[in-house]
Structure formats: structure tokens, C-alpha cells
Amino acid sequence: MAMLTRTERKRSEPARTAPTRTGVRRALSSPLSTVAVLLVTVVWTVPSLGLLVTSLRPEQDVAQTGWWDFFAHPHLTLANYHDVLFNGGFGVSDGLMPYLVNSLAITVPATIFPIVLASMAAYVLAWIPFKGSDTIFFVFFALQVVPLQMALVPLLQLFSGGAHIGSLTIFPAVGMGGSYAPVWIAHTMFAMPLAVFLLHNFIAQLPRDLIEAARVDGASHFRVFRSVVLPLATPALASFAIFQFLWVWNDLLVGLTFTGGAPESAPMPSRLAQLSGSFGDHWEILTAGAFVSVVIPLVVFFSLQRYFVRGLLAGSVKG
């Protein structure tokens, strides 16, 4: 929740400083609406603060009083985090730590794969003219409307059985459970339509002169892609990376379906869901677990945000 309000505030800033102020923009930049935005932000942030405070309070305190009581009796501990991460002692199995590792091992490749593939596809579709490129782009665009739930069962069958024509294997069975590969592949597939669409729109807008000058200088398409297009497209790549990272990190459905919840490969949300089932009244444990899963996307967001400032192109083409 705190994440959401933060991105929203970022987005509204350019509107406030934009030179052309239409009626709506002017209304949004009045002092009254500034106060309103602040108010909404506070209301949105308070539960997050409650989450953090609860996760730091000792078990008995949480059981007896609300988190605001912390202001009267400030008494904090990191014991809950230790419990939830490392202690196997609460009946189900180990702590969250292995799942945290799984989540990272799933999310990082599942963010990088679609970016690499989609940016290449976007360059080809935008800058290499060939028959049918419009059709291919349209198909990518249209695939965005297919809900991923529809593809779950066929994909499961594909992963467990592979695909064959007669005796010829065109897709080997990757096997389920204990392996990250099915989740990577599934997330990459589901991300591609939007990724290609977004990156194509950005890459097609890059200055033609820069690309053609490099081509005439003798650079191959791959060279142009690597040394001209990729650096120019960094803002778009960073935006999509954040988007995809958050989506995969918070995803429960795909992760649970393609790992079967096995401790060797299941991501954190599936474990958190189990915890809230078995520890529904242990708020100190649940809030600590929840907070761990909030912190990592926050770190990613703030470390990538400087890349999507669109300053990189400034001065590249003038006159």
C-alpha cells in the first residue's frame, strides 16, 4: 500500500510543474487539493506504519493491546523477525528464509528474461522492415487480452509432458516441483505481450538519425541494438523492470501452480498464505513476514527509479 501511494505522488509531480495548465491541472494544483493529497497519503500510510510497529512488538504486547499503544509503552524487539525467518518451531516446517531465497531466484530471472527478449523483439519490429512485421506486432498487441488463467492448465500439461509431434520432441518435459524453470518460463510468457508492446512504442520513437548513422558506419543490427538502442531505452527498460518485478514478486497464482508449493522452489507468497492459515492469531509473526515481503520491492523501486528519469535523451538531437 505504501508503495502505491509513493508511485502516485511521483507521477503527479510533472503535472504540477507543467507549463500548460488546463482546467483539471489547475484544479489539481490548488492548495486545497494539495492538502487533500497529503491527507489521503497519511490515511494510506498509517496502516503500513501499523504493520511495521506490530511486527516489532513483543508477542504479549501484540496479543493484549493495539499497535498505537506502542507510543505509550515503547518496547521493541527483533525476535519476531528471527522467529518468522529462521525458526521451524511453529508446527508447519522451516521459517520463511528458504522461501525468500526462492522468491529472489524466481523473480530476478523472470524479470530479466522478458526484458531481454522483448527489447530485441521490439527493436526488430520497430527498425527492421520486413513483410508481416505489422501483423506480428498486432498479434502481440492482441495477446494482451488473453487472461493468464486460461493458459494455466495447457501450460501445466506442456511442462509435465512436453510437446511432441509423433516421436519428435519439440518441447522437452521440464518436470514439476523442485525446479524454478517452469515458473521462469511461465512468467516470461505471460509478460511478453505487454513488454513487447511497451518497449516497441518507446524504441520506435528513438531518433532515426542516431540509428541510421550507426548503420551506415557499418554497425550490425546487433551492434546498433546494444550500443545505441539499449542505452537510449533505459528509462523504458527500468519502468518495465519495476513493473515486472513487483508483479512476479507479489504473484501467488503462477508461483503456486507451477511449483506445487514445494519448499525447494515455492515463492514467499505461497508460504505467507500458509502462515496466515495456521497462525491467524499470531499477528506479530504475520506482520513480520508481511514486512519482509514489502521491503525488497521497496529497495528495487528506489534503486531503479533514477533510471527512469527521462533526462538521458536531452541534447542528443538538437536543431
Partner: peptide, 27 residues
């Protein structure tokens, strides 16, 4: 063949030297 456009096709994140050196490097 070399090209020169109205807008100078220089890469903004590279220094002047690196921009000029790009041609031979591409070759």
C-alpha cells in the same frame, strides 16, 4: 559511405572522443 544529418547524430552518454571513435570501432 558516411552520413551527416541536420541533427548531429552524437550519443549523449559518450564523450566527444568516444563518439568520434565509434566509427572505426563499428568497423
Amino acid at each position: 559511405v558516411s552520413f551527416m544529418f541536420q541533427a548531429d547524430a552524437l550519443l549523449p552518454w559518450k564523450t566527444v572522443l568516444a563518439n568520434v571513435a565509434l566509427g572505426p570501432i563499428f568497423k
